[in-house]
Simulated assay, not measured.
Amino acid sequence: MAEDFKKITEQNSYYNDLEQKSVSELTKIINKEDQTVANAVEKSLSQIETLIKEVVKQVSSGGRLFYIGAGTSGRLGILDASECPPTFGVSDDVVIGLIAGGDQAIRKAVEFAEDNTELGWQDLQAYNIHKGDIVIGIVASGTTPYVLGAIEHCKSHNIPTGCITCNPKSPLAKAVDFPIEVVVGPEVVTGSSRMKAGTAQKMILNMISTALMIKLGRVEGHKMVDMQLSNHKLVNRGVQMIREALKVSEAKAKQLLNQHKSVRQAIANGQKTHQ
């Protein structure tokens, strides 16, 4: 491992004697540290932009976006992937999240799963991954073997790779084509990268998937016109979108939505009728 690589995510907290502090003090400390995360992400915007452009290129050409990680990082990737179909109406095989240890690891840690250098590639192969896809490794430390092994295999198969890590000059950042290094500093609880590092990863994942879906045409103006109508709240939101777009009554908007089962189609057909 390079001599200039230091795990900032493992450095000692700035705060001592946490167990002696009141709840009020603890919440203020955590909030103070959380406020630094957005600034850290801002410093990485050029890296984020570069990776997003590659993701858009691959997915626009029919490829898929894979997130791969372990522990908190893996769960965050799965969360982001799982929210794309209901929010943007895409198939669940456009953005795919993988975690060391499989689906059971979403709820409960699977011992030593992240230490296997071959398991990540095996998990990707189950999806018949190819060079038209793109893989983003999500690892706060930048050293997780499960992800590093998968990335090395991707490189040997000419599959584009990116990463989100919270340590500069990490082995993972050096291994991928499009690294994102967002340095949030030591955690309040030393080494607990589910905190600031996890928050930073979540913010970046929001940017990647949202920008991708906008560029794929899944948003009109600022509206989620392709969202799945999977509950009453979303149906009501869809009705309001149709009302605003077509300047029609609530009853008419409901009728159009019931007829077309899609906000986009309801608006498009409503506009035709009004022409």
Score class of each variant (00 low, 15 high):
residue 199 T to K: 03
residue 170 S to Y: 15
residue 87 T to V: 03
residue 23 V to W: 13
residue 274 H to I: 15
residue 26 L to G: 13
residue 107 R to L: 07
residue 53 K to G: 11
residue 21 K to V: 12
residue 53 K to V: 12
residue 138 I to M: 05
residue 132 G to H: 03
residue 11 Q to R: 10
residue 198 G to Q: 06
residue 256 L to P: 10
residue 153 H to C: 11
residue 188 V to T: 01
residue 74 G to H: 07
residue 250 E to T: 06
residue 113 A to V: 15
residue 182 V to M: 00
residue 76 L to G: 06
residue 37 V to G: 09
residue 95 V to N: 01
residue 110 V to M: 01
residue 22 S to P: 08
residue 111 E to F: 07
residue 152 E to N: 05
residue 203 M to V: 08
residue 165 T to F: 00
residue 111 E to N: 05
residue 96 I to Q: 03
residue 10 E to V: 01
residue 158 N to I: 11
residue 111 E to T: 13
residue 78 I to W: 15
residue 236 N to H: 04
residue 53 K to L: 12
residue 160 P to N: 00
residue 75 R to G: 02
residue 52 I to C: 08
residue 135 V to E: 09
residue 214 I to H: 00
residue 194 R to V: 14
residue 108 K to Y: 03
residue 61 S to I: 00
residue 258 N to A: 04
residue 184 V to K: 04
residue 272 K to V: 11
residue 239 V to M: 05
residue 272 K to P: 00
residue 6 K to Q: 10
residue 121 W to E: 08
residue 233 K to E: 04
residue 35 Q to G: 13
residue 154 C to I: 15
residue 264 R to S: 02
residue 73 S to Q: 06
residue 257 L to I: 04
residue 13 S to D: 04
residue 128 N to Q: 15
residue 132 G to Y: 01
residue 12 N to Q: 11
residue 72 T to H: 02
residue 2 A to F: 14
residue 58 Q to Y: 08
residue 129 I to V: 15
residue 40 A to S: 12
residue 79 L to K: 12
residue 146 Y to E: 06
residue 41 V to C: 09
residue 150 A to V: 01
residue 250 E to P: 09
residue 156 S to K: 09
residue 264 R to M: 10
residue 23 V to F: 13
residue 246 L to M: 06
residue 35 Q to L: 07
residue 37 V to K: 02
residue 51 L to C: 11
residue 178 F to V: 08
residue 30 I to D: 08
residue 191 G to R: 15
residue 227 M to F: 05
residue 32 K to H: 14
residue 192 S to K: 13
residue 149 G to H: 07
residue 163 C to S: 12
residue 60 S to D: 07
residue 129 I to M: 06
residue 38 A to F: 08
residue 166 C to Y: 12
residue 88 F to A: 04
residue 146 Y to L: 07
residue 121 W to D: 14
residue 110 V to N: 14
residue 85 P to K: 14
residue 131 K to F: 01
residue 53 K to E: 14
residue 259 Q to M: 12
residue 29 I to S: 01
residue 143 T to H: 05
residue 196 K to F: 05
residue 122 Q to M: 05
residue 156 S to R: 12
residue 103 D to K: 11
residue 123 D to G: 08
residue 152 E to F: 03
